[in-house]
């Protein structure tokens, strides 16, 4: 049954992707991408990757799509006709695709439990991590502890993105924005619904943040969801209003703080005589130490991701306001 669902979803993905090639209406292209992202999240659920599905849905279908739409608002929504030759791209893609198909022929069969990746390295994660790290969610254990250095790197990637976006689009102060141009202040239904939703979204974000050890979720997803609550607020009540709740400069501080919080756990464990990011040294009992470490670094990830996503939205949003004022 799972295979059948997989096949149907893959076919839908193929149709979506093919449609993107030929469409000239970029608004539709971006919407199709959102659909593509959601469909792949479904595939991830079907293939047991619930954490990945959660992230893909909130990031790919959520943040990425929103950013693309904002960009379209600034750059125009139709692709112009052009006479580019499609011969070379087709050739490149055919050769690359053929190489990959050739590579699949020796691949271990799909879903076979005897495949090398299920025999080497991963068994320890599956069998030992509930004891060694003490969390039921193995993805969180591997992400935050065994491969904690990757996750530190990932947090820094997010931080770098904020640096890039701020360097390119700039930070705007509250005074620069015209208050009356912003938001949907005359839409009463929207305002009331938003007021009801925002606390719930934030509550959900906190749940995802702290429940990530036991179920799907964690700092990254929580940060994105919390940012979504503020983005909703900014959309309905206007950017200036949002700026007065959390300012852009303050967000930069938060983004830095999250990275530093993560890294300081690593430094502290060095100070305690362990290797960098060795959480076992944080407490007398190694498993308890692992748990403390993971809670703190997940918090660091959550803070940075929240601050960066919101900063990026502010930067793009300010650009739209600026073009409206013109």
């Amino acid at each position: 049954m799972a295979e059948f669902i997989d096949l149907v979803l893959l076919a839908m993905l193929a149709l979506t992707a093919l449609r993107v090639i030929f469409l000239k209406d970029l608004f539709a292209v971006v919407m199709l991408f959102g659909i593509y992202s959601f469909l792949s999240a479904l595939i991830f659920v079907n293939l047991d990757a619930v954490d990945v599905a959660f992230t893909e849905a909130s990031v790919g279908a959520g943040i990425s799509t929103v950013l693309m739409l904002v960009t379209l608002a600034l750059t125009g929504r139709t692709e112009k006709e052009n006479k580019r030759s499609t011969v070379l791209p087709l050739l490149v893609v055919t050769v690359t695709g053929a190489a990959l198909i050739y590579g699949t022929l020796d691949m271990p069969p799909f879903g076979d439990p005897n495949n090398p990746i299920h025999q080497h390295v991963a068994p320890r994660y599956i069998e030992e991590s509930p004891k060694e790290v003490g969390l039921p969610n193995m993805v969180t254990s591997v992400l935050a502890s065994y491969r904690g250095f990757d996750t530190l790197g990932e947090t820094v990637v997010v931080f770098s993105a904020a640096i890039g976006v701020i360097a390119l689009l700039g930070v705007r102060r509250r005074e620069d924005l015209a208050a009356e141009e912003s938001g949907f202040l005359t839409h009463h239904v929207l305002r009331v619904v938003a007021k009801m939703l925002i606390p719930l979204i934030i509550l959900f974000a906190l749940y995802v943040q702290f429940h990530g050890d036991f179920g799907p979720g964690g700092g990254f997803q929580a940060g994105v969801i919390a940012a979504a609550a503020f983005i909703l607020y900014a959309l309905v009540f206007g950017l200036p209003q949002a700026f007065s709740v959390v300012g852009a400069k303050f967000l930069q501080l938060m983004a830095s703080f999250g990275v530093l919080l993560y890294a300081s756990v690593g430094l502290y464990s060095m100070f305690k005589g362990g290797q960098f990011l060795d959480y076992s040294k944080l407490a007398a009992d190694p498993v308890a130490g692992q748990h403390y470490g993971i809670i703190i670094i997940e918090l660091g990830v959550g803070i940075t991701v929240f601050a960066v996503m919101l900063s990026i939205f502010y930067a793009f949003g300010s650009q739209v306001e600026r073009s409206n004022v013109k």
Partner: peptide
């Protein structure tokens, strides 16, 4: 299922 690919893809 194998958690390691999930972790990599999250990143």
């Amino acid at each position: 299922s194998n958690p390691l690919p999930h972790v990599l893809i999250l990143t």
